[in-house]
Design a protein around this nucleic acid. Structure first.
Lengths: 80, 80
DNA sequence: ACAAAATGCAGACTATAGTCCGTGGAGTAG
DNA sequence: CTACTCCACGGACTATAGTCTGCATTTTGT
C-alpha cells in the first residue's frame, strides 16, 4: 500500500511550484525547520497548519487532504 | 460571516447520528472531555485527530474539512 | 419531584506541535 | 578553491494538543 503522508503531498506541491522550503515557510508563516520536519513525516500538523500551508500553496485544504492516504484511522469503528 | 469551526461541524454530525459525546469519544479513541473542548472551539485538533473523528462519524476527512469555513488562513499569500 | 444521562468545566498533568539558533553536508556555479 | 543555495539535523526551548479525575449543572425521561 502507498503511504501518502501530509509531508509527501506538501513536498510534491511545493516542488511543483518551484518553491524552496524557506520560501514556503515564509509564505505560510511557519518556521523553515518545521517545514523540513513536516516533509520528513516527523511532525503531524494541526488543521490550523493545514490551512496555512494550503493557502501558501494555492490549494483548497479539502483537496490537500484528499490527496493523502494514511492510516491514522482508528481500530474501533465497526458496526453502527 | 458564518464561522463554521471544526467543533461546529463535528457537533452537527454527531447529533445527526444520535451519538453522545461519550460515545463519540469511545469510537474515536479520544477523551470525552476533549470532545467537549473541541465542540466548544477551545482546541484545534491535529490532522490525526481529524482522521479519527471522521472515521468515527463515517465521513471522509476531506468532506469534513470541506464543511468548515474558518479564517486560519494566512495574511501573506498574495501573488504567485 | 426524582433519577439518570449528558455535558460543562476546573486543575494538574503528559505528549507533542511549532520556534529559534546554529552547524554540516550536498549540489551548483564562478 | 570559494561562494552560495538548499536542506538535514541537533539541542533547547515555548505553546498547546490531548488525558485523567472529579464535581456541578443541565437535560431528559418517568
Amino acid at each position: 500500500m502507498e503511504e501518502r503522508t501530509f509531508g509527501a503531498v506538501m513536498q510534491e506541491l511545493r516542488k511543483g511550484k518551484g518553491l524552496s522550503q524557506e520560501e514556503l515557510a515564509f509564505r505560510s508563516g511557519l518556521d523553515r525547520t518545521y517545514i523540513s520536519l513536516l516533509e520528513r513525516g516527523l511532525r503531524v500538523p494541526t488543521i490550523a497548519t493545514l490551512f496555512k500551508v494550503s493557502a501558501a500553496l494555492d490549494i483548497r485544504p479539502e483537496e490537500f487532504i484528499a490527496r493523502m492516504n494514511v492510516q491514522y484511522q482508528n481500530e474501533n469503528h465497526g458496526a453502527a
